[in-house]
Amino acid sequence: MSALLAVSSLAVSFHQYERGLRRRTVVPLSAMDLTADRGELVALVGASGAGKTLLAHAVLGMLPPNAEESGDIRVDGEPLDPPARRARAGRGIALLPQSVTFLDPVTPVGRQLRRSAALAGRPDPRAAAATALTDRGLSPEVAGRYPHELSGGMVRRVLTAMAMMGSPDLVLADEPTPGLPAEAVRAVLHDLRRIADDGRAVVLITHDLPAALEVADRVVICHDGRTIDEVRPADFTGNGEALSHPYTRALWLALPANGFHLPEDS
């Protein structure tokens, strides 16, 4: 039995025209490999600009038209081209963001929830939206509010309700923790863990290695558009003796708790 999500040798390049007809090709992703199975939480860790979010967009089939994609993305063992993946976005595959900017600022959240329900193919979007709110512990009057009238915790619950509307098998959580206080980070991670324990595959996309280590089953390290290492969280210990890849070890040793060590060659 193959993994729910299997990304192999994914490369994405953009063609850009600058000043007249001179064509420039940018290759933000060159070789990404990632698998995630049901019940599993896989963390994709890398610095900003390493191509983590782009990978999520590729899996959702929402790369811009000037992007060119090669490699292989399989869902349930079946190779899917971008249109087929797009058809599953919001149903089998969901993006789970955490920031208020991902909500439409001028539409009450109730309407946004109803739209999510309709897009997910729920027969009665109104009822589905109302149930989703109460299931997340939000009172019905929240439906009439605008995103800027919600607290950070309420925003995250609304976004989760929208993302889970289609009962996805695969959840891509994009940068869920930056800028959050410690207890909010813990709550977000706990939620993600519970989503995975419900029998879904969760890919946690983050640059926050300590946060990832708290909940992930596996950690995939990416750097400069390629995945370079895959590690079990237990291997991140001590001075990184168990870590074979130099970049992974450098990442581990650079953490404040491990003494802020910078690699000697840099």
Binding site: M62, A87, T101, F102, L103, D104, T107, L159, M165
Partner: peptide, 23 residues
Amino acid sequence: DHVAFARAQGERGFGLIRHRVVR
């Protein structure tokens, strides 16, 4: 970001403009 999220939820073309852009 809110349009990126709507796209990830399966919103396309005319629906995207009508529900997430017009207002």
